[in-house]
């Protein structure tokens, strides 16, 4: 029952991210990337993704299989950024997402929100806002929390 509720919450959050993407992605002031579940299926079939499992590269293989969608938006117009931030905050409030981290440095505020339980993350949102712009990243799916942490950690190693 909990799993069903989590999946439903993830679906609802994904729909909201999709609506934000639809609203802003065509604007000139916004850079946007959307990767669908079909594309994740194709990525999972790439030979290179399986090679990275045995190397020091970022290991995306386990995550790719569990992701449904990825939205990335970046804007640099003050008015558009303010509107987008307002819409993202609405999703976070609506789905009562848990604030995982908040960091403020040199005028930039980074917040990471998640929905899920100890084992699974169904929705992941990162926002980074500063005077220069606003970035919104949304990942939806049925991600294993450890795999997600591992992917982020291996990405940190590659920095």
């Amino acid at each position: 029952m909990t799993a069903v509720l989590l999946l439903f919450a993830a679906y609802a959050a994904a729909q909201d991210s999709k609506s934000i993407y639809k609203k802003y992605s065509d604007m000139d002031e916004v850079n946007a990337v959307y990767i669908s579940s079909s594309m994740f299926n194709l990525i999972g079939k790439l030979p290179s993704i399986n090679i990275s499992e045995s190397t020091d590269e970022i290991n995306m293989a386990p995550l790719v299989k569990s992701l449904n969608s990825m939205f990335v938006m970046d804007c640099n117009d003050e008015r558009v950024c303010a509107d987008m931030k307002k819409d993202v905050d609405k999703i976070i409030d609506k789905h009562k997402m848990e604030l995982l981290m908040e960091a403020k440095k040199q005028g930039e505020t980074v917040r990471v929100y998640i929905t899920g339980n100890e084992k699974t993350v169904t929705a992941f949102i990162l926002t980074a806002s500063s005077r220069d712009g606003f970035t919104f990243i949304s990942l939806d799916g049925n991600m294993n929390r450890k795999e997600l942490e591992k992917a982020i950690a291996s990405a940190a190693e590659s920095l």
Binding site: M70, V112, L126, I137, I152
Partner: peptide, 10 residues
């Protein structure tokens, strides 16, 4: 994107 996320988490 994951590199960016880990950058921000770091």
């Amino acid at each position: 994107t994951f590199t960016y996320i880990s950058e921000k988490l770091n």
